[in-house]
Design a binder for these strands. Structure first.
Length: 233
DNA sequence: GCGACAG
DNA sequence: ATCTTGTCGC
């Protein structure tokens, strides 16, 4: 039995072209809710996607953990053919299919999703974290390692130092120094959450590294698997 | 027309 | 993201 926690996630009319994808974003951007709408948050699922260029496949890694312990409870790894090219601003159309496949294998439904990429800090306010959050109707946060859009002042050097990420006169996220002497992170809410809460939760998931634990562990597992496969070739 | 551009 | 070894800095 698969996908029992995510009943309404059919990808029948998934876009094939950039034009169709942008059209869908214009429609979905209005379904994003940037207000806290959730109960007690006990667990979080870190999500990361990697690629196998030669096999033309995408791999989603999901790490489920308790928010207070930040230690893996379950890890899911699934592969699927890569069906959409990487186009800045259209990342969700490339990665969401395999992510949904992985989510379907979780033993328990997470209370929160933390995705490697932008939330509303996107040209059309529908980065991958926001898009995914709307599709599965769950609270989500986007944690990106670099900027897609928006302007900001460089945050101070200490952990926790931050500055607002602005675009077209509105605040779309937080630029955060998650660790001294490392590049900043770009935090933005994905769905059912406000900017301050997304930032606070990200800080709560830090454990001395630049990336918050959910995303950091998912990324680590993603790379371990790749090395194992490569050494077998 | 010229830069910018998540992963 | 991925291709790739050693190397500078804390």
């Amino acid at each position: 039995m698969v996908a029992m926690f995510f009943p309404s996630t059919n990808l029948h009319s998934w876009p094939t072209t950039a034009a169709e994808a942008i059209e869908l974003q214009q429609e979905f951007r209005h379904r994003v809710k940037i207000e806290n709408d959730f109960g007690e948050l006990k667990t979080v699922a870190g999500i990361d996607v990697s690629y196998d260029i030669k096999a033309d496949t995408s791999r989603a890694v999901i790490v489920l953990m308790k928010l207070d312990r930040l230690e893996p409870l379950q890890t899911i790894v699934t592969d699927a053919p890569t069906t959409f090219p990487y186009i800045p601003g259209l990342l969700s159309f490339r990665e969401i299919p395999v992510i949904l496949q992985a989510l379907g294998h979780l033993a328990t439904k997470p209370d929160l999703l933390m995705v490697d990429g932008q939330g509303i800090a996107h040209p059309r306010r529908l980065g991958i974290a926001a898009h995914l959050g709307v599709l599965v109707d769950m609270p989500s946060i986007g944690v990106a390692k670099s900027r897609l859009t928006g302007t900001y002042k460089e945050p101070g050097p200490a952990t926790g130092d931050q500055s607002p990420l602005m675009d077209k006169g509105e605040r779309i996220g937080t630029v955060l120094r998650s660790k001294p002497k490392t590049n900043v992170l770009f935090i933005s809410p994905g769905h059912r959450m406000d900017i301050a809460t997304a930032t606070q939760l990200t800080l709560q998931c830090l454990r001395g590294y630049r990336l918050p634990e959910p995303t950091r562990i998912a990324d680590k597992i993603s790379k371990q698997r790749e090395r194992r496969q490569q050494t077998l070739l």
